[in-house]
């Protein structure tokens, strides 16, 4: 889905989110990005399945849509990807987002997002969690 009309930077602060918040789901098409993430970024190489690099990229797109932009100042701290099924390179996926946890840490407020990436047949293909720190 196009990001047209979605601000680049969000006016939302991570502190305004709460553990348990559910956002979406959002539909994303993998065809425009799959073949540009198999090696050097932006260099086209064809393949049957979506490469791993698609996973953090799609969730970044979804985060922008979920939060009406990316809140400025956030630092990517940690990510975990668990793959349950291969994703076709041209798949249409539905991504549900949940704010799983928040805690104060040495580098600011850490917010954990869980992304459940579903295929069209509604199977959970990938579960990803991402921790972002927001220095105050």
């Amino acid at each position: 889905m196009s990001l047209e009309g979605v601000p680049v930077l969000s006016e939302l602060r991570y502190a305004e989110l709460s553990a348990g918040d559910r956002l979406g789901s959002f539909v994303e098409e993998l065809a425009p990005v799959s073949d540009q993430l198999r090696g050097a970024i932006g260099v086209v190489a064809e393949g049957e399945h979506a490469p791993g690099g698609v996973l953090p990229l799609v969730t970044l797109r979804v985060l922008r849509r979920a939060l009406r932009g990316i809140p400025p100042g956030g630092v990517l701290v940690r990510q975990r990807f668990t793959v349950h099924a291969p994703l076709p390179a041209g798949a249409s996926v539905r991504v549900a987002v949940r704010v799983s946890a928040q805690r104060e840490a040495h580098n600011g407020l850490q917010t954990t997002f869980t992304f459940a990436v579903h295929q069209a047949d509604d199977l959970a293909a990938v579960v990803e969690w991402t921790i972002l720190a927001a220095p105050e």
Binding site: E48, P51, G52, R78, Q79, R80, L87, A89
Partner: peptide, 14 residues
Amino acid sequence: GSGVPPGVCLDVAY
């Protein structure tokens, strides 16, 4: 292969 096979788990600390 061209994708990430089922059962793979990757945990990343930046």
